[in-house]
Design a protein around this nucleic acid. Structure first.
Length: 394
DNA sequence: TAGACGTGGCT
DNA sequence: TAGCCAAGTCT
């Protein structure tokens, strides 16, 4: 592979070659070396690759959980500009943090960043801790992220396993058991760790993931693959069947009704409970259309159940389709007339706070994606102020 | 351990 | 259009 002398020993992950001067020079497993070379030529420029500061690596890794890299970049820049270090996160208001996260999904990640930052301030001098165990103990940091931070930011020789790594090694070594199973995960973790070139964990881990994202994709680009000669799945002609998938949760279709109440030029929003879906985000009240109901009936029932308000739908604003986790949602949106109830201090049965706000202020609040679309339609209808994805906080 | 937890892009 | 999927974690 290297053309550099004779292999004299295979030890752990390292092949030793004799140099021209007779010294033992470390070289790496051909697969690892190929990945390192490929990465050096093909890595995408990313903001957190500028200096690999532990704080930047932590934020980027959490942002990228279950998220495509391109989508994370702009969120990352905005986050770092607003909250430059762990103490800033520790003292930030949750509403500000959720607004920075709006649209990324899995909002417990954002809430956990605050919790973890507070632990860093309390126990780690306001810094990201540098060992795997301490990282693993922080909220929102699991086995992947702990090893990613330890290797990328601190240079520890720890291999990471994410969906890319599972796909790449499943194909290279023809792993024929479902990747969801614990035993399979352990086998892939062992393979990744065995191939890790000592001292090169930062580049190696990113190389495998980047290679999985750009070449060894779900629909792989085997024609341009530098590892084709090493790939067992390719030799067997079963690349499309690796990795072996687990059971898929089936998609459920649901109809949801929501409605906007206006009163004296203000509109009503409420804040969702911390636990559960969209925890801590703001929304227009509403809920699932039950069997036998039409959406107009649902929204009347929901306002009575959630706020003990009587309302009447006056206009259908829009029908918005979006998805979340395993649901496909059709969101029926209504303009509502407030009939009676305690407008100023309603009992909150499905919320922790509520507010009457001007339409122009809607952009300051973190809303679920479906409600953000509705909010933007309302803003656009009223002359375009606060249009787009909502104004960002200055 | 399996299910909950979001979203937008791609096929 | 509908299904699949992405630098996972928590319970």
């Amino acid at each position: 592979m290297t053309g550099r002398g004779l292999p004299v020993k295979v030890s752990d992950n390292t092949l030793y070659f004799l140099s021209f001067f007779g010294e033992r020079m470390p070289d790496f497993h051909p697969v690892a070396q190929t990945l390192l070379d490929w990465f050096a030529q093909n890595m995408r420029p990313l903001p957190w690759r500028a200096d690999y500061s532990p704080y930047h690596v932590w934020i980027s890794e959490v942002m990228l959980q279950q998220t495509q890299m391109e989508r994370g970049v702009e969120y990352f820049r905005r986050w770092i500009a607003a909250l430059p270090d762990p103490p800033a996160v520790a003292t930030a208001h949750e509403d500000e943090v959720l607004k920075l996260w709006e649209g990324l999904g899995y909002y417990s990640r954002a809430r956990n960043l605050i919790k973890a930052a507070r632990v860093m301030v309390r126990d780690h001098h306001g810094r990201v801790p540098d060992d795997e165990a301490a990282l693993r103990a922080l909220p929102g940091i699991g086995p992947y992220t702990a090893r990613a931070i330890a290797s990328l930011a601190f240079g520890h020789d720890l291999a990471v396993v994410d969906a890319n790594v599972e796909r790449v090694f499943s194909r290279l070594f023809d792993v024929d058991t479902p990747v969801r199973e614990t035993a399979t995960k352990r086998r892939i973790a062992d393979l990744a760790q065995q191939l890790l070139p000592p001292g090169r964990a930062r580049d190696y881990n990113q190389a495998v993931m980047e290679f999985g994202a750009l070449v060894c994709r779900k629909n792989p680009d085997c024609g341009h693959c530098p590892l084709a000669a090493h790939c067992e799945a390719r030799r067997l002609g079963i690349v499309a069947h690796r990795p072996v998938p687990g059971k898929q949760a089936d998609i459920q279709h649901v109809d949801v009704a929501t409605g906007v109440v206006r009163r004296g030029g203000l509109l009503f929003i409420q804040r969702r409970p911390e636990d559960g879906v969209w925890g801590g985000l703001w929304e227009f009240p509403g809920g699932t259309v039950e069997p036998g109901e039409i959406p107009e009936q649902t929204i009347v029932r929901e306002y009575m159940e959630e706020l003990e308000w009587a309302v009447a739908p006056t206009r259908r604003i829009a029908t918005i389709r979006h998805g979340y986790t395993r649901f496909r949602v059709t969101l029926h949106c209504f303009e509502l007339e407030f009939l009676h109830g305690d407008a100023e201090n309603p009992p909150l049965h499905e919320a922790t706070q509520c507010r009457w706000i001007p339409l122009a202020d809607l952009g300051r609040y973190a809303l679920p994606a479906g409600h953000r679309k509705l909010a933007d339609m309302l803003s656009a209808a009223e002359g375009g102020e606060g249009e787009g994805e909502g104004e960002r906080k200055k």
